[in-house]
């Protein structure tokens, strides 16, 4: 019996729940295939930059990557809506996306035309909020604030639509950048704050919940198709199980991180005008030209 190896890369640190989730996924796949399919997980981008890895995957390498809808949107534009502001509002809604015909069509297109097989995307990192040193209740409060975002235009459009000045910056520069006021805040999830000790330089968490970040696990479709069918099933099913478990762990970890931050003296702003932010967010879809894609998915969701 031929054995297969998948080297799986992700950008997160080894203490993040996702890393534990990926190793769980890997152990179960290995167990279920009797060691026929092994997964070797690399944290902190040890195998390389996310975009490089995606290109390697497209060339058929036995490498996998945890990525987001914004990056996949480079290949199939519509898919980027998943990364838009206020697109889904619960974890359950995110899981349900997998069954929508249009999502299936886009994944097929990714696999057939770009060589990228989405194994699953039941990995939800939680709500992103604005963390600042000034209280934010409505879009106008963000005016003129330089908010660090990941360096991707789709992300920057979303943040601009919500009222802030998106500022691209290396994650490593964020701590000193905040300390020295090169930026005024960041938009992240709660566990990012505790992991990078950003509460040492940020005082206020504004719960705008503007993006529910859904992550995608991709491998090479050429490599995936070369696997025996039962290995393919094992990889996909265990991906979904581990992903949903991890999302639950993160939900709890987020609550724990929030509690820890409150104890550490961080102010939490809960009474945010969500409707105003939701409306402001629409501008991002227009700027990115994915209004139709969004409508399509939303109508399928309601059926």
């Amino acid at each position: 019996q031929e054995t297969y190896t998948l080297r799986f890369n992700h950008v997160l640190g080894p203490n993040e729940p996702f890393h534990k989730g990926f190793t769980d996924w890997s152990e179960r796949v290995e167990e279920r295939t009797g060691g026929g399919l092994k997964m070797d997980v690399f944290h902190s981008s040890q195998l390389g930059v996310e975009e490089d890895i995606i290109e390697q995957i497209r060339q058929g390498a036995n490498i996998g990557q945890n990525t987001d809808a914004a990056r996949l949107g480079n290949y199939v534009p519509g898919i980027a809506v998943v990364n838009g502001p206020y697109f889904v509002s619960t974890i359950e809604e995110a899981y349900a996306l997998a069954d929508l015909p249009t999502m299936k069509k886009w994944q097929q297109e990714l696999a057939d035309e770009h060589g990228l097989k989405v194994v699953c995307f039941d990995w939800v990192q939680g709500f992103r909020n604005f963390y600042t040193n000034k209280e934010i209740r409505e879009p106008a409060d963000l005016e003129g604030l330089r908010i660090r975002t990941p360096p991707a235009p789709i992300w920057q459009e979303s943040i601009r639509a919500l009222g802030a000045e998106p500022t691209a910056m290396n994650f490593g520069d964020v701590y000193p950048g905040l300390q020295q006021r090169a930026i005024d805040g960041a938009e992240l999830v709660y566990p990012n704050i505790t992991a990078a000790n950003l509460n040492e330089v940020l005082k206020i968490a504004n719960e705008t919940k503007h993006i529910l970040l859904v992550n995608f696990q991709v491998v090479s479709s050429k490599w995936f198709n070369s696997l025996p069918v039962e290995y393919q099933t094992a990889l996909v099913e265990e991906c979904r199980t581990a992903g949903q478990e991890t999302s639950e762990v993160i939900r709890q970890a987020t609550e724990a991180a929030r509690q820890k931050l409150i104890e550490a003296g961080m102010t939490i702003v809960e009474d945010v005008d969500m409707e105003a932010f939701r409306q402001a967010g629409e501008a991002a879809y227009e700027a990115l030209g994915i209004v139709e894609a969004k409508k399509q998915l939303q109508s399928e969701m309601q059926q």
Binding site: P14, N15, F171, G172, A195, N197, E200
Partner: peptide, 10 residues
């Protein structure tokens, strides 16, 4: 080091 090891950077 601080980010990976969850040690206070300050």
């Amino acid at each position: 080091f601080g980010t990976i090891g969850q040690v206070s950077i300050g």
